[in-house]
Amino acid sequence: MQYWINQDGVQAGPMTIDEMKSMSITSDAYVWREGLNDWVKITELDELVGEIDFVATDQPNVEPLIEEEPIAEGEPVAEGEPVAEGEPVAEGEPLAEGEPVAEGIPAIPPIEQQPAPMQQPIHPQMAMTREQQPKCPPTNLVWAILATVLCCIPTGIVAIIYANKVTSRYQAGDYEGAARASETGAWWCIGSIIAGIISSPFISVIKMLASA
C-alpha cells in the first residue's frame, strides 16, 4: 500500500509504511492512500496507529500551512517537493477532482478539501438557542390511532388526546409539559394495546359460555 503524507504543508509520497517509519513524522500530519476519499489525520488511520512513532510537535498551536496554499487540483506533487503554487494547468483542460492522472499515480485530493484540523467552536449563543428549543417529544400518534382502530378498546382515544397535548404544549413553549404528555400518552397506548390483546380471548370465552 502506497501512502502520501503531508506535514507542515510539505507533501511527500508515494511511500510504504516501512519508509514512513524511517521518517520523522509528527502526529498532526495528514495522510492519504488509495481508497480514502480525503486526507485524514495520521493518528486517525487505524492501520498506521502503533506502526509509526510520532515525533513531538514543536509548535502545537501553529495551523498547518497546507490550509493556506491550495495546490492545483488532482496534480501529483513530486517527492519531497514543498507545496508551491500549483503548476498552471493547461487552459480548457481542467482536471476533475480526484480524477486519476496518467502514469498510474492516483490523483491526490485537492488540499482545500482537507478537513479543518480544529472544529469550529460553537458560539455560546447558538448553543443556548439550541438548548432552549429541544426536539419535540414523540406524540405516539401512530400507536394511538392503531390502538383505537385495532384494539377494540376505545381508550386509544385518550392517547390521541394526549398526542394533541404534546404538540400544543410544545408549540406554546412548555417543553416539560409536552414531555410529560408524551409519556402519559405512551402509557395509554401501551395499556390499550395490552388490554385489547389480553381481554379479547376472555371476552370470546365468556360470550361462548353465555350463548351455550
Binding site: T148, C152, I153, K207
Partner: peptide, 19 residues
Amino acid sequence: FPRCVFLTLTGWKCPGCGT
C-alpha cells in the same frame, strides 16, 4: 380471531369494529 370487547360488553360498535 379476537372479538371486540366493547361490542360484546355494551352491544355498541367501537370505532374499530370490522377492522
